[in-house]
């Protein structure tokens, strides 16, 4: 499997990372190098092997249905780069 330039752009957009035209060939090279590094895994016979979901097997702890940790709107928006009253503000989202 080889990553072409169109794929680099598609992946960059999926990851929401702007890439310049100059960066694309370089990134493609790096991704391909990594993919050939991991290609070794194709040799392993994984038939019937369960993929790992939790490395320490245990039962999931559950919380009680109680309101315990509201931070308050002040704390929630305290670090926001742009805010209005207690709203976060973003460039217009078109529905």
């Amino acid at each position: 499997m080889s990553v072409d330039h169109a794929t680099v752009r598609r992946i960059a957009h999926l990851a929401r990372i702007a890439v310049t035209d100059d960066e694309v060939p370089h990134l493609a090279g790096e991704l391909n190098a990594l993919l050939s590094f991991v290609a070794e895994l194709d040799q392993v016979d994984v038939a019937g092997i369960e993929p790992m979901t939790s490395v320490i097997p245990m039962k999931m702890h559950m919380r009680a249905d109680v309101v315990t940790d509201q931070a308050g709107a002040d704390a929630i928006v305290a670090n926001a780069p742009v805010r209005e009253e207690h709203f976060f503000v973003v460039p217009k989202v078109v529905e």
Binding site: V67, T68, D69, Q70, A71, I76, H86, F87
Partner: peptide, 27 residues
């Protein structure tokens, strides 16, 4: 129907002012 959210302890109640029923997890 529940008091708190699926993965946090913030209230599910309708009609609060903005970002009031929000935990650090939800944000």
């Amino acid at each position: 129907n529940s008091e708190a959210k699926l993965f946090s302890g913030a209230s599910t109640q309708f009609g609060a002012s903005e970002n009031e029923h929000v935990s650090l997890v939800d944000a």
